[in-house]
Design a binder for these strands. Structure first.
Length: 533
RNA sequence: GGCUCCGUAGCCAAGUGGCUAAGGCAGCGGAUUGCAAAUCCGCCAUCGUGGGUUCAACUCCCACCGGAGCCUCCA
């Protein structure tokens, strides 16, 4: 059967464990998707990109992978936001889901098999709640249904919390709960809220139950991998885990994976976190209490106005953002900003130049699967037989790359090998002088192709170098160059005007007018603007 | 207050109880070039601080300093 040397860090055990599937050769994995009440931001892409890569790698290793990402399309925030916008919750959810999916596509996330929506699974959800009540792990109270955390003696294991330190005072519904840590499985609806019929009256599901219900429907009672952001460990995954385990009497998931969160790179050096509630105000004299929560946190969130993901992708290209995310380890915090993104882009250019070089020499299309196929499974790889050092180095680097991916999907380490492969290939081209037609032989050309095939093979695992890169629109320095040019022209014209050389100055101005640029003379100098039409 | 995690060169970032601590960006020197760009070669870190364990620690343990996250909705 499929043998592998993959090791995965499991949040539940806090250890790297050998990867053992429940069914031979098959993997079921579930990633918590977004609550679709607003446009996605960059932080929402971390999980999908890493899980897309994990699926690609597992498939490469010969596993048949089923990947599920849920869409939470019913929730308090959706209700509130849709009211603000004056549209129905369903309209809002549909629009925001479309935004999310478009962003995923831009980043090359195309491995998802199922995208279940909570509202399409009401029967399953209600059934799940009924089962929990029947098993006495849940109770109905005033139209709501709550999970009784005291009935579950393993509650708190995932997030390493004791039962009495959870969810504070129980919130608004405390009076309906047996204990403050109990969480809602079903919430009764107020008159004008979207609602569904249930044994407990009109209402809607709590946040956690949908994942338990939908993962069971698609992947079964126990499945292999469950992922999400580190911020979901508690309460969301703790609760999911409790619901499913208590309902089925068997583990919900073998491996719990959590990706690190994204942080704004330009917001460093702030004092404290937003949850430093017990820190005395006296220690923070410069920060007004009212602003503290927002100004002190560097975390990217929708509430802080993060967004504009589509524009970001437009500016940088999806591949650049994907590569940026894959450069570091998925469990570490990623510092996000224009600078690091631009740096990732700069390093990516070297690969694009190598690929162009390859195409120029061989006349083959790198991205065309019929001309340069990439291995879909590691077992199909055949190492080229050669004494050439550069090519043998590429074969060695391929092994190194795969070993790093085996070790808890170390994409950050693996990308390093990619750079070394590119260098080896350039060295090979230089040494064989392949840029000169006369120096090409069937042998060295074949070696070039086999080396580049390895680059393509490994790139495909990371989900890069699959399609020709789109030119970025803005961040390539065009704006700066234009500004520089304009300042030069403005200066030349100013000097001409000082010399009373109006023929020259008018020539400059008229020439610019013809290409659609208008000059404005003012007291502080000349400014310019682009005239549409 | 409770619970996690992190601190590796100017910047970003892998990693290991003992071989020369990956790679990228930037920089410097060289080859190449009419010049440049690109490409190649070379240079550029003793791993936050202080202890401890060990024959041996950047890697394990403790303390401290610094940073982040969760404990409320959050990918």
């Amino acid at each position: 059967m499929t043998t592998n040397t993959i090791r995965i860090y499991n949040t539940l055990s806090k250890n790297k464990e050998p990867f053992q599937t429940l069914q031979p050769g098959k993997v079921g994995m579930y990633l918590c998707g977004p609550t679709v009440y607003a446009e996605a931001h960059i932080g929402h892409m971390v999980g999908p990109v890493i899980f897309d890569t994990i699926k690609r790698f597992l498939a490469y290793c010969g596993f048949e992978v089923t990947w599920v990402v849920n869409i939470t399309d019913v929730d308090d925030k959706l209700i509130n936001r849709s009211r603000e916008k004056g549209i129905s919750m369903f309209q809002l959810a549909t629009a925001m889901t479309a935004d999310y999916l478009a962003n995923l596509q831009s980043l090359g996330v195309d491995q998802i098999d199922h995208l279940p929506r909570a509202t399409d699974n009401m029967d399953e959800i209600i059934k799940f709640v009924q089962e929990l009540i029947a098993l006495d792990f849940a109770y109905a109270s005033g139209g709501d249904v709550y999970f009784d955390v005291l009935k579950d003696n393993e509650y708190g294991r995932l997030s390493n919390r004791s039962v009495d330190s959870q969810q504070g005072d129980g919130g608004d519904q405390a009076s309906r709960k047996r204990s403050p840590g109990d969480f809602a499985l079903w919430k009764s609806a107020k008159p004008d809220e979207p609602s569904w019929e249930s044994p407990w009256g009109l209402g809607r599901p709590g946040w956690h139950i949908e994942c338990s219900a939908m993962s069971r429907r698609i992947l079964g009672k126990t499945f292999d991998i469950h992922g999400g952001g580190l911020d979901l460990v508690f309460p969301h995954h703790e609760n999911e885990l409790a619901q499913s385990r208590c309902c089925h009497g068997q583990p919900m998931v073998t491996y719990w994976l959590h990706n690190g969160l994204m942080q704004a790179a330009d917001a460093k050096g702030k004092v404290g976190g937003k949850n430093d509630r017990d820190q005395t105000q006296a220690e923070l004299p410069a920060i007004p209490p009212a602003d503290k929560a927002d100004s002190a946190s560097t975390k990217i969130s929708r509430s802080k106005g993060a967004g504009g993901l589509a524009q970001l992708i437009e500016r940088h290209t999806g591949e650049r953002i994907r590569f940026f995310l894959l450069r570091s380890h998925y469990r570490s915090t990623t510092l996000f900003g224009e600078e690091p993104l631009a740096e990732a882009g700069a390093s990516l250019e070297a690969f694009y130049r190598l690929i162009q070089r390859f195409e120029r020499i061989t006349g083959l299309k790198f991205y065309d699967a019929t001309e340069l196929p990439s291995n879909k499974h590691s077992s199909t790889f055949v190492a080229p037989t050669t004494k050439n050092d550069a090519i043998n180095e590429v074969v060695r680097l391929r092994e190194s790359f795969l070993t790093k991916m085996d070790d808890d999907f170390n994409t950050g380490g693996a990308t390093g090998d990619l750079f070394e492969i590119a260098r080896s290939m350039n060295r090979f081209i230089d040494a064989e002088q392949l840029e000169e037609t006369a120096k090409r032989t069937p042998e060295n050309t074949a070696l070039l192709v086999s080396g580049m095939s390895i680059l393509k093979e490994l790139g495909a695992i990371l989900g890069i170098f699959i399609k020709p890169p789109k030119q970025s629109n803005n961040n390539d320095g065009t704006a700066e160059i234009l500004e520089g040019l304009m300042q030069l022209l403005i200066q030349v014209r100013a000097e001409a005007r000082v010399k009373r050389d109006f023929a020259m100055s008018d020539s400059v101005r008229n020439g610019l007018t013809k290409v659609g640029i208008a000059l404005q003379d003012g007291k502080e100098g000349t400014t310019w603007s682009i005239n549409k039409d």
